[in-house]
């Protein structure tokens, strides 16, 4: 019984952790959207900023991956 409650808590926590992915999605969308609007205003400067774009995406996305990792840890390692 007690194990079942722990299990339930772990699964609930895993599901809640997945909400963090939404935040990462918003962040990545924000980065790309702003890049795109900037790039459309000044297309000649866009090519030089793709590296920055990918770094920004990577930082934003890493946090989503962390939440995924927390979910996995709760599901399998706790």
């Amino acid at each position: 019984m007690e194990g079942d409650i722990v299990q339930m808590g772990a699964y609930l926590g895993a599901g809640l952790a997945c909400m963090g992915m939404g935040g990462a999605a918003v962040g990545v969308g924000n980065v790309v959207g702003n890049y795109l609007s900037g790039a459309l205003r000044n297309p000649s400067a866009a090519a030089g900023q793709t590296a920055t774009l990918f770094i920004g995406i990577a930082f934003a996305e890493a946090l989503g991956i962390f939440s995924f990792l927390v979910a996995l840890l709760l599901m399998f390692a706790v």
Partner: peptide
């Protein structure tokens, strides 16, 4: 930490 977990997490997440 973020450098390594980003790569592993992405690969793992996609396959999962």
């Amino acid at each position: 930490i973020s450098h390594s977990i980003r790569l592993a997490g992405n690969m793992m997440a996609g396959h999962a």
